[in-house]
């Protein structure tokens, strides 16, 4: 039996946590995002990997269609203060509930504080361990019911 992650979505039956991993913006490589994607998979989650150069709109579209629990945004470009809030705003505008957002990348403390105040549940710097990322994603995914 595969080891299913506990989740509050669905009718009582547990299903794996579903995570969208995307790298919005224009920067070129997605190694870090891929490492995180694989780690989450190995922790029993279903990861929908969107890859590079996705617009905030297409990320939210995908999250809705995939009925994701969590959106993980990987950023290197320094555009986090525009891209991350944009995703959050689109989720709000479309009245999507039950999808939380986390972000990873090089994000200064001050920005991280502001992002948290906008509802970003978790923020990971380059030094974050995979264990702590897995743990936090599980927590964020479990925090809300459908």
């Amino acid at each position: 039996m595969p080891n299913r992650s506990k989740n509050t979505k669905g009718s009582g039956k547990s299903r794996p946590i579903r995570v969208i991993i995307a790298k919005p913006g224009l920067d070129g490589h997605d190694r870090g995002a891929k490492v995180v994607a694989r780690a989450l998979r190995d922790a029993g989650m279903e990861v929908i990997y969107l890859g590079l150069r996705q617009t905030p709109e297409s990320i939210v579209d995908a999250a809705i269609e995939e009925d994701a629990d969590v959106i993980g945004l990987s950023l290197l470009s320094g555009a986090h203060m525009t891209l991350v809030p944009r995703v959050v705003k689109i989720l709000k505008d479309r009245k999507v509930r039950g999808i939380s957002v986390f972000a990873g990348g090089i994000i200064p403390d001050e920005d991280a504080r502001r992002l948290r105040s906008m509802g970003i549940k978790a923020i990971f710097g380059p030094g974050a361990t995979l264990e702590s990322i897995i743990h936090q994603v599980r927590q964020t995914a479990g925090r809300h019911a459908a």
């Binding site: 595969p2 994607a37 190995d42 922790a43 029993g44 279903e46 969107l50 890859g51």
Partner: peptide
């Protein structure tokens, strides 16, 4: 395919 070991999967096919 899901991993038969963890039940997880990377779905990269969008």
């Amino acid at each position: 395919p899901s991993s038969p070991f963890t039940g997880g999967a990377v779905l990269g096919d969008r």
